[in-house]
Structure formats: C-alpha cells, structure tokens
C-alpha cells in the first residue's frame, strides 16, 4: 500500500526551494524584511491581545457550557467538542493512546475546545486509531465548529487513517496539541 510520507514530501519541497534560491538572494530578502519590519502593521496583534476571548456562558456553545474534565469515557469530556466516532478511552486505549494492536494516524482533523477548569481554549487533534474493526463503544458525535469536506481539517466524518498499515477505522483519540490563543 502506498503510504503518505510527510518527511519525504517536506524534503522534496525544501530541496526544490533550495534549488531555486541562492544564498545571496536569501540574505538580500532577509535584509529587506528586516528593514521593512517596522512598516508591518502591528495593529492586528495588538487588537488580538486587547480583545480577550469572551468565555462567559453567553459566549460558549451548548457543548462548552456542559463540558466536564473528570471522565474521558463520556461524550461530555471537554476535549471531545468536535469528536465523531468511538472513544478510544472506552476501547482499551486512552485519551491519546490507541488500543493494543491498532495504530495512530499521523494526520487528523482538529477542534478548538475550551477547558472549563481554566476557561482557556486548546487545539485538539482527533487522531484515529486504525487497523482493527470499529470498537463500537462510547459513540459520540460532537460538532462544535465542525464543517464540511471542503474544509477537511475541520470535518469529523472522514476516515483519517492515512500512512497507517491499514485504513480500517477502530476508534478516535483527542490529543492535546497546545493552547489555541
């Protein structure tokens, strides 16, 4: 089976870029960028800092208002705001752990979920575990900011088992990637 090799793709891109760019032209471009830097508008950044995200109940989605941080085998667990499928936590795995014999997909769709304990938003990668039959336990389908296939990274229906030995869907994890603000 043809596998998606991110390393090879990146290497190819970098080599191509390097082939087209001389060291002198790179230094020249960096110089221009440094000189022009003060002209770059800083306003949007300042505005973003000034406008703190509204985490009041009125600004939260229905999911975020009832999310909890205690039980990752329930669909209401805060990180599952856009998950679709069987929870690996109920299938012998964990929140970021694939059950024995299955394999995590290296690519995934993502969600931005709010932790109710600190009110902060985090980027969550919903990585499928692949290579075994559907686990069928703890089926959830949460849809905060979930869109359609034209924005695939925000769609939770796609089978994301790319670059794995088997493309059979087993269950979904919710890996914390980092803060989203």
């Amino acid at each position: 089976m043809k596998k998606f090799d991110a390393d090879a793709v990146c290497e190819k891109l970098l080599r191509k870029q390097a082939g087209r760019t001389s060291r002198r032209s790179l230094i020249s471009r960096l110089g221009i960028a440094l000189v022009a830097a003060p002209v770059f508008p800083l306003l949007p950044v300042s505005r973003a800092e000034a406008a703190k995200p509204d985490r009041s109940p009125e600004a939260k989605t229905a999911f975020a208002r009832s999310a909890q941080t205690e039980d990752d085998t329930e669909c209401t667990y805060w990180r599952y705001c856009a998950i679709d499928g069987a929870l690996c936590s109920c299938c012998g795995g964990g929140i970021h752990t694939c059950p024995a014999g299955s394999e995590p997909s290296p690519v995934s769709w993502v969600g931005t979920c709010i932790n109710p304990d600190n009110g902060k938003a985090y980027l969550i990668a919903y990585r499928d575990c692949c290579g075994k039959p559907m686990c069928n336990q703890c089926l959830c389908d949460n849809t905060d900011r979930e869109t359609q296939l034209y924005t695939p990274q925000l769609n939770n229906d796609i089978i994301w088992c790319f670059g794995t030995q088997s493309m059979q869907y087993h269950c979904s994890t919710a890996v914390l990637v980092g803060g989203a603000e």
Binding site: F4, V107, L149, P152, D157, I159
Partner: peptide, 29 residues
C-alpha cells in the same frame, strides 16, 4: 477515492452519463 460515509456528492455523473467524477482525498483533494 475519499473514505467517508453519508454523501452523494462524492460521485456524480455528467448529464449524458458519459463521465463519472469521483472525489478523492489522499489527503490531497
């Protein structure tokens, strides 16, 4: 082809039935 369920828009035909258009996601669209 894409592996996803529940959609009719990933496989459509031309009006005369000559051509089939199959959506693919590998993960390039």
């Amino acid at each position: 082809r894409i592996l996803v369920d529940e959609r009719k828009q990933n496989f459509v035909l031309s009006a005369d039935g000559r051509w089939g258009f199959i959506y693919s996601f590998s993960p390039a669209q």
